[in-house]
Design a protein around this nucleic acid. Sequence first.
DNA 1: CATATGATGGACT
DNA 2: GTCCATCATATGG
Length: 175
Amino acid sequence: MDNNFFLRKADIVARELLGKRIVRKINNKLLKARIVETEAYFGSEDPASRACKNGNLRDTMMQAGGTILVYGIHQQWLINFVTGKKGKAEAVLLRAIEPLNFNLKCSGPGLLTRALKINKEFHEKNILNNNELWLEDNNEKSKFEIAKAFRIGIKKDLAEPLRFYIKDNEFVSRR
DNA sequence: CATATGATGGACT
DNA sequence: GTCCATCATATGG
């Protein structure tokens, strides 16, 4: 994965992430999955983002693109990838993945972190330089259609749709 | 320490 | 669609 991949705006990265593979290494076994649903979040200007109020989280979102951001909510861990240049508070939330070589439900942000055993240990590590979790580009772009929607489970959303998913993919979270 | 608050998920009507 | 268990955080005393 290119070093500049995450240095773009969160909504661009969210779209580009679709179809990429996420690989998790556990005890020398590789869990592979395809990213099928993402959401873009912004810092200060985004009323839906926790970073809007929370200083610590915003600091993490201001890191340079590629930093992993993990935070707990409703007894789940949610994983985000920080995007944009250092100083910009932006991130992309991983909402759903399609398991390729294992059989666990991954149709939701909390479910996929459970399946891949992702927890706070990954917080503030870098996805581009990690031997337990990384991304692979397998050039699937243009093999699918991208659908847009408003973000899920949020009280105050922004005016523009910031949720992106692969159209007609059965592993996308519902609602 | 006490309490409130969800970027959830699953069960249920 | 609605209800709610459950817990990592933030915030206030």
